[in-house]
Amino acid sequence: MTRAERIRALGLLAPAYLWLTVAVFLPLSAMAFFSLLTEVPFGEREWSFTIANYTEVFGNPVYATLLWKSLKLGFWVTFWCLVLGFPCAWILARMLKGRSREVLFLLVILPFWSNALVRIFSWAIVLRGNGVLDRAVNAVLPWDVNINLMFSEPAIIIGLVHSYLPYVILTTYLSLQAIDETLIEAARSLGARWPRILWRLVLPLALPGLIAGAVLVFVPVVGSFMEPRLLGGRFGTTYGTLIEDQFVAVFNWPLGAALSFILLAVVLVILAAASPALRKAAT
């Protein structure tokens, strides 16, 4: 690289690095600093350094219980996103053309355009007893059923899957579209049936998209707090709501920051454990 090229590269990279510094590095460092304090250093509060916030988290089984619960929630939401997202991406990428594809795309992206709270409250209207779902099912079925999914674990999963499904569909769509049609034709001409083509050809080739989508879903879901709180009722206490409480209700920022960093560490460990698969998929 010549000097001029290097300067140009620097100029092009500068906005991105500046943004990373301001939006990621600085707040994260501030939180790392807070997590080691006894008190939030606002106003005239006395504060000193401590690791008590971290020992508190490891000493109290409540935090571990909730972390496990949130990880399980992340797993199930990711699972359902993949199961529902893959066929949808397949239809988008391989079966639809022109106007109908655009319409379906719009429907997939629509959740992104609406406010998250509005989405959740509309789910509340649908899921509650005597709500939209309950009435619709009862209008069709000849016998009476009572469907009240509101304030339950399925309600949390439904709300979260709806919010995060577009990520999986979009990433999978991209990798499915990149599959060369002639590969599938070759497989068929050699006598492979659909299940075999799907399992041996399409799935492996779509894997990078599926994994990218899974990571995009899993990480935010483990830390989610709004959907569990609003849809989960008494089941809605998660690791995310615990962190939210520390910041909003109890005003214990140091403990909240420590909880966030432990979550970050756990998520990084999980991603690191999955990285061989990730690397294999990328090649």
Partner: peptide
Amino acid sequence: LALWQELKAGQ
């Protein structure tokens, strides 16, 4: 608060 959190986490 500890009691309350424990009860809520146990759900």
